[in-house]
Structure formats: C-alpha cells, structure tokens
Design a binder for these strands. Structure first.
Length: 540
RNA sequence: GCCCCUGUAGCUCAGCGGAUAGAGCAGCUGCCUUCUAAGCAGUCGGUCGUAGGUUCGAGUCCUACCGGGGGCGCCA
C-alpha cells in the first residue's frame, strides 16, 4: 500500500477512535484527504482532517488537530507532526518507510504500480475511425495517439481492452471517392465535394475497373486502409479490430435495431420516412432513421453498431474517441442508448478538441477534401514516433491545441521528449559505467537507502512513489497527459539528483544506495513511458 | 438562438476544493580537468477573461456576462 494510503487509514482510524461523534456519523471522514504540500516546510504529507471535521465535531479545527497529532505522533510511520495554519496536520514521514517503498518498487518493477480499477471488465475503445477516403492527417494522429495511450492506461489498471477502428466503408463519401478517381482518370474536373491530392492521381492511374462510382470507391477503400494501417503502425499503434460499417448494414442489424426501437414505441413515420423520437430521450430534436428513399441514415447504422458493441458483443464499457466536430452525434446516440434500455453509464464519448496548425505563426487551413491536409506521415517523419507521441500526449484533449510546424520541424525543446528521454538515458549510462568499473550491483538495504537524506534524494524518492496515484487518476479521468506531467517532474527530480549527488564516486555504502535509487527511477520512468507507448532510450 | 470545449507568464501548456499558482521555450546571469551541459542553479515575467455566489479555504465548484474553437442535415 502506498504511503499516502497508509497515512489516510491512520488518520481516519485515529479520528474515529478519539471522537465518539464520528462512530455515530462517519460520513465526514470521507472528506479527509492526504495531500503533498507544495512547500517543504509543510511536511512530506499534510492532512485536512481537522478542517473538514470541525463542523461535525463543533470544535475549533486547531484543537482537533492537536488531539489527532498527539495520537499520530506515536505511530512508527510518523517521524514528526505539526499543526499549522488554520488546522492542517503536517506530517514528516520516517525515512525507513520511504526507503522501504522505493526498494519494493525496484524489486516489483512495474507491478508495483498496478491497481485493479477495472476488475477485469471488458472495455472497447473506438478511435481514429477516419473515413477511408484518404491518408490520415495530423488531426487524426492526435486522437489516434490519445486513444492508444488511453487504451494502454486502462489495460494497465486491469480492463480487458479491445482497440477498434470503425471503418465507414459505405455511403456517400465512398461514392464521392469513386467519382473523384473516375474524374481524374478521364482528365475531368473532380466533382464538387470530391477528393483531391496526389493519392487520388495514383489511384486513378492504377484503377482498371468500370465507370461505376461505387465499384471504383469500393476498389480504393482497402488500398487506402492499407495506407492508414501503415501510418498507424509508424506511430506505434496496432488496432485489435477493424469493424466494417458495410458489414453491419448487410447483416440486417440496422433494420433490426430500428425494429427494436419501434417495439419500444420510439419510432414513428412522417412524410415517408421513419423517425426516432429521440427528443423524448434527451436529444434536441427527433432524428430520421430511414429516409423516404428507403436507405437507412448514418445515425441508424451507428446505433446498430453501438448496439452490437454493448449488447451483441457485450462490452462492459465502451469509450468512443471522437473529434469535437462529431459533437452533434452525442445527444442522439445517448438518446438511443436510453431508448434501448441500456445503462447509459456503459458508453462514454470523449470529444477531442480541434488541433490547429501554425506555420511560423500563421494558421494553416486543412481539409481532406481539398487535399490540403497536413499528412500525419509527414509529422512522424519530421519528429520521429516518440517525439510525435509525447508532443501530442503532453496536453489535454479538452483544449484546442496549437502547434507550430516550424518549431516542430526544428525539433526544438518545445518537445518534452528530450528532457524525459535524457533522464532515462543518463541512468542507463550510469549503469553501464558501474558495470564497466566492476561496481557491486546488489540492491541497497532499507537502512542504507533510508540514510540518503540529501534533499534531492528525498524529493526523488517521494516523487517516484507518486506514480501509482497518478496512474489511477489518469485512468479515472481518461487523461493520459497526466502521465507526461509526472514524467516531467520525475525527470526534473532525477536531473537534480544526478547533478548534486555523485553516485559512482561515493563511498561504497552510499554508492549502492544511490545506484539503487537510480535503478528504481529507471523502473518508474520506463513504466510511465510504456503507458504512453514511448520507447525509453539507452543513450542519446 | 441552443449544445459541448475553452480563457493561467511574451509563446506552448500543466495545475484532486488546500497554505507562497508551476514547467518547457524565449530573455538575462552563473556552473563542465569530475558518472552524458539535450543538464543544474539564479533572475525577469501573473488583477488565473470579468462580476457575483457557495466554502474555514476557489485558478479549481455554481450563475451571469465577455472573448476563442467546435456542433446543431432525410451528409457521413
């Protein structure tokens, strides 16, 4: 158990013992937390216990804090404890306790950080799902990387994850694709709303089929999907499943799900079309399911697809990762989930805000149809897989990001990858040197590591242990960028330690302890990097 | 008009309701005969969009307003 969790248990049980009132009404105890103060003078850990219990106990917070402090001081885990400010408990932890955790971390490796949030539940993450009408652009790469990192994170906390790409291989855009290829083949102008770009010319040159737009479109789809698969592969992303929209339409599942809605009284007919009464399930208006020409709408297909995911395949939880331009679909889909009697908590739709590109400060407009999109391949080639992933993952998808292509191309320090990778590479170099010098590589004892009291050493040890809680939080909030935040901090702590605390030239006992700390740091860094799908570097 | 996201240092962005709001880049100043200087330290730089509210405590939660992005098809 992590130190913060131990302390929390300690504080709450002490409060419960000392104050009878809390045995009758333990609810306020849930407000008690253990924090890590920003300032060293406020201790290794701090608790708000006295502050949040003051009202229930009808006593001044500082008085409560004094009573708690007196009891907690007797625990072996606690080195010192102070009451500060309005009633905070500032706790200094016994060095051996910190050292014991760091040794456990090193011995257990990444298993040390594992938690069982998911309890083995099945989770499907749907992401990318870009129309197979052209190469992926930078915006696709953003959400692809997010979806992949989120999948890794969720798998780490014990969800059984399936990564799926929904292939929109039917409908109007496929006809447009076919029409565009045919137009270029005959030297005519690409139709309004058609696709352009070098890849269309290449497809047109290779196409030997008929003048049927559907045939031409269907012929091109697998070729384009291969391009997409290769690009994803270059980004280190392998989907577990590619699910065809056409297959679900051909299976009759769309008609079935509309029938299911109808049997629940949620379908009516008007002007020759079948409508889903989605407004009464929370949508802003009703939606057409089957057009008056007899075709089902995209939404109807999408509902059938989600029915397939949640009911037919029965995933416990489904997370859709969409661009913010799909926002309009969310209310309709959730309405359908409710109308079908499915627990709406089983579907989460994460909307990634748009990514805008700047080139030397000037906005770059991009559009797949106009052929002016910035290809994802280009970005990966310029930056490399790891730098691309880390650049993308360093900020939240809730915010519209801007990247400057000129800066990205320069591989400047805008990208945190160098700072983080350097820390890992430095440790690798340290270990190589140690082996070369014939240094004893045994693991330090808890006592030896506990005697490392340099502020740099203590700060590093404490930060290493934070990774566990950070992973939990990142998974709960579906926010892999929090892992990058931890990595930056841990790298910073390591660089500081490395600068101020010589390892190999230290006396043997201290050398072993510091080497153990460095190796534990490497384990933690590698664990975090692996969650992001970024390879740790042995040297730079 | 309605819905979603967002507004934090010159720039790009972090920041569970906790104490004195951070990092990287850019600027300035120190530190390599010493385990990788892609590093470390210092410095400059902030009315956390505005105004109310909830709270012992608000950058964080609520409301309104202002600014930015996206969405509101018998397209997909």
């Amino acid at each position: 158990m992590a130190i913060a969790d131990r302390l929390l248990a300690l504080v709450t049980s002490a409060a419960e013992e000392l104050f009878e009132q809390l045995r009758i009404d333990p609810a306020p105890l849930s407000m008690v937390s253990i924090d890590e103060p920003a300032v060293a003078q406020h201790g290794d850990y701090a608790s708000n216990a006295a502050l949040v219990l003051a009202k229930t106990l009808a006593q001044p917070p500082r008085h409560i804090a004094e009573i708690l402090a007196q009891r907690l001081r007797q625990d072996v885990l606690v080195d010192a404890i102070e009451v500060a400010g309005p009633g905070f408990l500032n706790i200094w932890i016994a060095p051996w306790a910190l050292a014991r955790e760091v040794i456990a971390l090193f011995n257990d490796g990444e298993e040390y950080f594992r938690t069982d949030l998911g309890r083995g539940a099945t989770l499907q993450v749907e992401f990318v799902s870009a129309n197979p009408t052209g190469p992926l652009h930078v915006g696709n790469g953003w959400l692809a990387t997010y979806g992949d990192a989120l999948s890794r994170l969720m798998a780490f906390v014990n969800y059984r994850v399936t990564k799926e790409y929904y292939v929109n291989d039917t409908g109007g855009q496929i006809r447009q694709l076919g029409a565009s290829i045919l137009a270029v083949r005959t030297g005519a102008q690409v139709p309004e709303g058609g696709y352009q770009g070098a890849y269309i010319s290449e497809l047109a040159a290779r196409y030997e089929g008929s003048d049927d737009v559907v045939e031409a479109g269907n012929w091109a789809v697998p070729i384009i999907l291969d391009l997409i698969r290769t690009t994803l592969d270059d980004l280190g992303i392998q989907m577990d499943s590619w699910f065809s929209q056409a297959s679900i339409e051909e299976s009759g599942a769309v008609a079935d799900v509309v029938g299911e809605l109808a049997s629940r009284g949620a379908i009516y007919e008007r002007e020759g079309a079948l409508w889903f009464a989605s407004e009464s399930f929370g949508d802003s208006r009703d939606r057409v399911m089957r057009k008056s020409n007899g075709d089902f709408t995209y939404l109807a297909g999408d509902i059938a697809y989600h029915y397939n995911k949640l009911v037919v395949r029965g995933f416990s939880l489904v997370i859709d990762v969409f661009g913010a331009d799909h926002h309009g679909q969310v209310a309709s889909m959730m309405a359908a989930i409710r109308a079908l009697g499915i627990d709406e908590g089983r579907l989460e739709i994460k909307l990634g805000q748009m990514v805008s590109l700047l080139d030397n400060g000037q906005a770059v407009k991009f559009s797949k149809r106009a052929g002016t999109a910035i290809p994802l391949d280009w970005l990966i080639e310029e930056l490399g897989r790891d730098a691309t992933r880390l650049l993308i993952l360093s900020s939240s998808i809730d915010r519209a990001s801007q990247i400057d292509l000129a800066q990205a191309k320069a591989q400047s320090m805008e990208n945190p990858v160098f700072y983080i990778q350097y820390a890992h590479a430095r440790i690798s170099a340290l270990l190589r040197n140690a082996v070369h010098q014939g240094v004893d590589m045994e693991v330090a004892s808890i006592e030896a590591l506990a005697s490392c009291r340099h502020p740099r050493e203590v700060a590093l040890m404490k930060n290493l242990l934070r990774l566990g809680p950070v992973i939990v939080r990142a998974a709960e909030e579906r926010a892999p960028h929090k892992i990058v935040g931890w990595l930056m901090g841990a790298a910073s702590d390591f660089h500081g330690f490395y600068h101020d605390c010589p390892v190999l030239s230290a006396p043997p006992a201290e050398r072993t302890a510091r080497l153990t700390l460095a190796r534990a740091t490497q384990v933690a860094l590698a664990t975090a990097l692996d969650l992001l799908g970024v390879a740790p570097l042995e040297e730079m």
